[in-house]
Simulated assay, not measured.
Amino acid sequence: MPSIDAERAEHGPAKMTARDVSVYYGDKQAIDTVSIDVFSEYVTAFIGPSGCGKSTFLRSLNRMNDTIPSARVTGKIALDGEDIYDSGMDVVQLRARVGMVFQKPNPFPKSIYENIAYGPRIHGLADSKADLDVIVEKSLLRAGLWNEVKDRLTDTGTALSGGQQQRLCIARAIAVEPEVILMDEPCSALDPIATAKIEELIDDLRGNYAIVIVTHSMQQAARVSQRTAFFHLGHLVEYGLTSDVFTNPAEERTKDYITGRYG
């Protein structure tokens, strides 16, 4: 399995790095000294049984845990070498650079157009309505949604199907030109056809963004990711090439989980 040093030699510096990261909710420790590098060239999947900490760790990568009063993060997480928990970090700007797509689609109660245009407008990415039009079309095209909604941009985003809503949320994340996209079980509420479209979209987006996906489905992790991290009881047990993790795991706990002995 590739070491972090070997990854750096092949791909250059990591887009995001975590070193000895622990997360606490009050007195309860949810993540215990996790270190991992996330590179831009591929999709990284976080797998593990329910309650293992994978979503908690994902949320720490763009400070979504800040919204939970009892949450506390120690260690260091850096984006392009910059500590994202530094007191001088603009959290709004951070979340534009490190976008997030949630388990349940959460379009704004606005038109399809405004769902996409809202972020670029507040971040000053467009000088005119014409600029916004270009961003909206480009984002919906990249999310594979443009042809389905181009004649109904004034309709509310919540009127779309579940799979379309999730692609709208991905388009909304793309619209502010992020560098990293975090996806927290983005297909768990979707049917198999919608899931296949989201997986195809993830593959299309790979290489343009560093993508991290949390999934309960090992089959999905095997299909969409090139690197897999296995979490168990708040620990990062194993991280490496997806093909190695699934066919030749280095840790017994990984093998037990992959073969269905627990989870």
Results as ranks from 00 to 15, higher is better:
Gly119Val: 10
Gly119Arg: 00
Pro120Thr: 04
Pro120Asn: 12
Pro120Ala: 08
Pro120Val: 03
Arg121Leu: 09
Arg121Ser: 15
Arg121Pro: 08
Ile122Phe: 10
Ile122Ser: 08
Ile122His: 11
Ile122Leu: 15
Ile122Gln: 14
His123Val: 10
His123Gln: 03
Gly124Asp: 07
Gly124Glu: 08
Leu125Asn: 14
Leu125Val: 14
Ala126Val: 10
Ala126Phe: 10
Ala126Leu: 08
Ala126Met: 06
Asp127Arg: 00
Asp127Leu: 00
Ser128Cys: 11
Ala130Thr: 13
Asp131Glu: 11
Asp131Gln: 07
Leu132Ala: 11
Leu132Asn: 05
Leu132Gly: 12
Asp133His: 02
Val134Gln: 09
Ile135Gln: 01
Val136Ser: 06
Val136Glu: 07
Glu137Trp: 00
Lys138Thr: 13
Lys138Leu: 03
Leu140Glu: 04
Leu141Lys: 10
Arg142Val: 03
Ala143Ser: 10
Ala143Trp: 00
Leu145Val: 08
Asn147Ala: 11
Glu148Pro: 06
Glu148Arg: 05
Glu148Thr: 00
Val149Tyr: 01
Lys150Gln: 15
Asp151Arg: 03
Asp151Asn: 15
Arg152His: 14
Arg152Trp: 05
Arg152Pro: 13
Leu153Asp: 14
Thr154Glu: 15
Asp155Ala: 10
Thr156Glu: 14
Thr156Val: 02
Thr156Arg: 04
Thr156Phe: 09
Thr156Pro: 12
Gly157His: 01
Gly157Asp: 06
Gly157Ile: 02
Ala159Val: 12
Leu160Gly: 13
Ser161Trp: 02
Ser161Arg: 00
Gly162Ala: 02
Gly163Ala: 12
Gln164Ala: 10
Gln164Tyr: 02
Gln165Ser: 09
Gln165Leu: 05
Gln165Phe: 02
Arg167Trp: 08
Arg167Glu: 13
Leu168Met: 12
Leu168Ser: 14
Cys169Ser: 06
Ile170Asn: 04
Ile170Ser: 10
Ile170Leu: 07
Ala171Gly: 11
Ala171Cys: 10
Ala171Leu: 09
Arg172Phe: 11
Arg172Gln: 13
Arg172Leu: 11
Arg172His: 14
Arg172Ile: 13
Ala173Asp: 01
Ala173Met: 01
Ile174Asn: 12
Ile174Ala: 11
Ala175Leu: 07
Ala175Thr: 04
Ala175Asp: 05
Ala175Tyr: 09
Val176Ser: 15
Val176Ala: 15
Glu177Ile: 02
Pro178Trp: 03
Glu179Trp: 07
Glu179Leu: 01
Ile181Gln: 09
Met183Glu: 01
Asp184Ser: 04
Asp184Cys: 01
Asp184Pro: 13
Asp184Met: 02
Glu185Val: 00
Glu185His: 02
Pro186His: 01
Pro186Val: 03
Cys187Leu: 00
Cys187Asn: 14
Cys187Ser: 15
Cys187Glu: 04
Cys187Arg: 00
Ser188Thr: 11
Ser188Asp: 10
Ala189Glu: 11
Ala189Val: 06
Ala189Cys: 07
Ala189Phe: 07
Leu190Met: 01
Asp191Glu: 06
Pro192Met: 11
Pro192Gly: 08
Pro192Val: 00
Pro192Ala: 07
Ile193His: 05
Ile193Leu: 14
Ala194Trp: 03
Thr195Tyr: 02
Ala196Cys: 02
Lys197Trp: 07
Glu199His: 08
Glu199Gln: 13
Glu199Ser: 05
Glu199Leu: 04
Glu200Ala: 15
Leu201Ser: 12
Leu201Val: 12
Leu201His: 09
Ile202Ala: 13
Ile202Cys: 12
Ile202Arg: 00
Asp203Tyr: 02
Asp203Cys: 13
Asp203Ile: 14
